[in-house]
Amino acid sequence: MPASASAGQHEMPGTHGDAPSGDGLAASASGFRFAPAVSSLPPGQAASFRFQIQGADGKPVTAFEPDQTKLMHFYLIRSDLTGFQHIHPELATDGTWTAPVTPLQPGTYRAYTSFTTEDGAGKAVPLVLGEQITVAGTAATRPVPAGSTTTEVDGYTLTLSGGHPMATMEGELTVTVSKDGQPVTDLQPYLDTYAHLTAFHEGDLAFAHLHPKGTVNGDHGGPALSFAAMLPRSGNWRLFLQFQTAGVLHTAEVTVPVG
């Protein structure tokens, strides 16, 4: 905590340090491999998705470092950018992670693991690794919604500002939260920040995590949330913004075109 931070106030994660890097389109990087136990999941029913992170020797990794309070962030998204899930799996002593997945519709999905571990020299290695998963059945895919600067969820309106994002260029995205026309100022910390924002690229399903800026000070977040935005390629990105009020987690979705 910075010496200047007031009581109950601290920096949001992502304002310093190394966040997991990678676009999730590879299952292996830096000597580590995402190794799912299965390549498919059943349609329409809850399931336990098990996997390991394996080192260059093929042995499961058992030591991880926290990122936004969790040792592992696991994501699922369907090829049409629907069916988003963000799960925090449990780690067994043998290095097997178990993610409780809610029922999925048929289709082709990509699973992502976002984590930080150490290499043989003790250096932190932050990674995002991904693998394709299928769900049997006929997929009723949907077109990706057009780009917008507003979206709604559970009675909340989210408004995006920050100009037109350009690929590979660092920028700032601001999301303003309101309800019934009034600014929302009672956002609660979720994963040690006031909002968690992930993005997926239409077509290849590349993954990006937009890092929050600012400080956390109790249940007083909002109405404006700022993120360091660097999306690595042009095209449509589907953003999923998760925030919490009164103990309830909300997930808003919006499409952002990147030039």
Rank of each mutant, 00 (worst) to 15 (best):
S226R: 11
S148D: 07
K213V: 01
D57M: 07
G147Q: 05
A37E: 10
L231I: 03
A146K: 13
R78Q: 05
T116E: 09
V175I: 15
T150P: 12
T198C: 07
P13K: 13
G14V: 04
Q9W: 12
A167F: 06
A199Y: 03
Y156N: 09
M72R: 07
T215D: 15
T149L: 14
A199W: 00
D18P: 00
L91C: 01
L231K: 02
M169W: 09
D219F: 10
S148G: 04
A29T: 04
I53W: 08
D80S: 02
A46D: 00
W237E: 00
S234F: 09
P60D: 10
G24C: 04
T151R: 07
L241T: 10
E202M: 05
L104W: 01
H201E: 02
D154T: 02
P189C: 06
F240H: 14
S21M: 15
P183K: 03
S161I: 04
H201R: 12
L187P: 06
S79G: 03
G31M: 13
Q85G: 02
G163Y: 11
T69D: 15
S226F: 05
E202V: 05
D94F: 01
D204K: 00
T93K: 00
P43T: 05
Q242C: 09
M230D: 10
G181R: 13
D57E: 07
T134S: 15
T98R: 09
F240C: 01
P13M: 14
A47K: 01
Y190Q: 00
D119H: 08
I53C: 03
G14P: 04
Q85I: 02
T150V: 12
A27S: 14
E202A: 05
Q9M: 14
F49P: 14
G259P: 04
S21H: 11
H196G: 01
L231W: 05
T69F: 12
H220A: 15
L231V: 00
A140Q: 11
V175M: 11
V258P: 07
T117H: 00
V177A: 06
T151F: 10
G14I: 06
A3Q: 11
F74W: 14
D180G: 08
S48H: 09
E90I: 02
E172F: 04
R50Q: 11
D57V: 09
K179Y: 12
H196A: 01
P89I: 08
S114I: 06
K59G: 07
M166A: 12
G8L: 12
G214P: 05
G221Q: 08
E253I: 11
R233Q: 15
L205V: 06
S48M: 09
G24K: 04
P183C: 02
P126V: 13
F115M: 06
A124I: 02
G221N: 07
A252P: 08
P212M: 13
T102R: 05
P189L: 00
G31V: 14
H88A: 02
V135W: 11
N217M: 08
F74Y: 15
S21K: 11
A37C: 03
V135A: 15
K213F: 14
V61T: 15
L225A: 11
L127Q: 13
Q182W: 04
A167K: 08
Q85L: 00
P13E: 10
T176W: 00
L225F: 10
S21C: 10
G147S: 03
T245N: 12
T116C: 07
P100V: 10
A136P: 01
A35P: 07
E253M: 14
V254A: 01
S178C: 11
T116K: 10
V216D: 09
G58V: 12
F207C: 04
S178E: 15
A7T: 14
